[in-house]
């Protein structure tokens, strides 16, 4: 995505927020915090409620519906929130605010917070794929060489064997990671089928080479492995105390 005009600076209240729409129809929540401006998806990732109806105190954004919260500087989920916000880096030029889009890799929760060098090394492994609805990314028993990051679209999973095949969830958010078997030991083959339910854009990344990059940068590797562990755990049990 190219640079897009969002709104004049003065239409964002100091330490406040406003919903804007670009000429291309992209709806954004634009917030001010001190000298900085931030832009995020306009709707709550939970139930499609406009975030501009929520609460914002200059540092934390809260959706009023179910109190999901995000750090306004990063869009990272806080408290009860189960998903981060998609962020659009803001450029200020004179009195105008512009946004540019980020790659799915840099908004992916799996890689948030790792070193810039390692992230760009992983980026250089990316093969972009555009797939039609119905296209199968991988099938039962396929060798598990690459993992995927969703850029756009929707991917659904099936697990099981023969007639006893059942749905095993779906991915629909930019930056979500799937097919992570090559990042875990002893998972050389696919145990699921991943199908694009609609036209989808994917980033396909070599697992073995990614592991080598993470091994060379253990601090980043630690972050990614911890995130991967919580991602896997999330499929099994709810997080946090009640």
């Amino acid at each position: 995505m190219d640079k897009r005009f969002v709104c004049p600076r003065q239409s964002v209240p100091a330490n406040g927020m406003v919903q804007c729409e670009t000429a291309e129809g992209l709806k954004l929540l634009v917030a001010n915090s001190g000298d900085n401006y931030f832009a995020y998806q306009a709707m709550c990732p939970h139930q499609e409620v406009p975030l501009c109806e929520g609460m914002y105190d200059g540092s934390v954004l809260t959706c009023h519906q179910h109190l999901w919260q995000w750090d306004i500087r990063t869009g990272a989920a806080m408290g009860l929130a189960e998903a981060p916000l998609e962020s659009f880096p803001v450029e200020v030029e004179g009195d105008s605010l512009y946004v540019v889009s980020q790659s799915a890799l840099s908004v992916s929760e799996l890689f948030a917070g790792i070193s810039g060098d390692t992230l760009s090394a992983i980026s250089s492994l990316v093969q972009k794929e555009e797939r039609e609805a119905g296209s199968i990314c991988y099938d039962f028993g396929d060798p598990a060489d690459d993992f995927y990051v969703l850029e756009s679209g929707r991917v659904e999973f099936l697990i099981g064997r023969d007639e006893r095949v059942s749905p095993a969830g779906f991915m629909l958010r930019k930056g979500e990671v799937f097919g992570w078997a090559p990042l875990v030991e002893n998972h050389p083959r696919r145990i699921a089928r991943a199908t694009c339910l609609e036209q989808s854009k994917l980033l396909r990344i070599d697992g073995r080479k990614t592991l080598a990059l993470l091994a060379a940068d253990p601090a980043s590797g630690f972050i990614v492995m911890r995130r991967l562990a919580s991602l896997i755990a999330r499929y099994l049990a709810p997080s946090g105390s009640k």
């Binding site: 609460m55 009023h64 519906q65 999901w68 408290g79």
Partner: peptide, 23 residues
């Protein structure tokens, strides 16, 4: 309930997971 939520979040800065209610 909404007014109380706003008060607890914005004024009292209570973390959201310390607030319970059914909407």
């Amino acid at each position: 309930v909404d007014a109380s939520i706003r008060m607890l979040l914005l004024q009292a800065k209570l973390p959201t997971d310390h607030i319970r209610y059914d909407k």
